[in-house]
């Protein structure tokens, strides 16, 4: 994989993401933003107990943010809240780690390995996950914090 921050895989992923699909009657939603650059994401979820059944929402962000949101939309369906929480934690740790390979990254997010050395851009990758976790925490009846 290229060590360029904006390598083809990330750019293509961002370009093909559809960032404006809204869910009808979501069970919960949350909006998160990065005041530094103006990125803003609304994450809408449909839940069945602790399991995410659908995820969507508008993304106004940079390439990294859009690509990250696109991956999340693809892999979150069917995940339990705790699994998502754990994956977000792993990704956050991997971005901060000193390792010189991408093995500590959750598999779906390994394309973001070059972001590791750009500390100011970590929040761009994390924002969609933070939005999803915030939406879960605001979802009545979930047990995401158990």
């Amino acid at each position: 994989m290229s060590n360029d921050l904006y390598h083809e895989q990330i750019i293509e992923r961002a370009k093909r993401s559809d960032n404006n699909i809204r869910l009808e009657n979501p069970d919960c939603s949350a909006t998160v933003s990065n005041p530094l650059c103006g990125d803003r994401i609304t994450v809408e979820l449909k839940m069945e107990g602790d399991v995410i059944k659908a995820i969507s929402g508008p993304v106004k962000g940079c390439v990294l943010c859009k690509a990250s949101a696109s991956i999340l939309a693809e892999i979150a369906v069917g995940m339990k809240c705790d699994e998502l929480k754990s994956m977000a934690s792993d990704l956050g740790q991997a971005l901060k780690s000193q390792a010189d390979n991408n093995e500590s990254f959750p598999k779906a997010y390994r394309m973001f390995y070059p972001v590791k050395k750009h500390k100011s851009r970590h929040s761009c990758v994390m924002l969609p996950l933070e939005g999803a976790l915030k939406a879960i925490s605001e979802c009545k009846g979930h047990s995401g914090d158990k």
Binding site: L5, Y6, L36, C37, G38, C62, V63
Partner: peptide, 22 residues
């Protein structure tokens, strides 16, 4: 195009230091 994307590409590929955001 997002300002942060522009700034990153301009830095990484052209050595141009710009500022993006608010």
């Amino acid at each position: 195009l997002h300002p942060h994307d522009i700034c990153q590409v301009m830095n990484d590929r052209h050595g141009v230091a710009l500022r993006g955001g608010f």
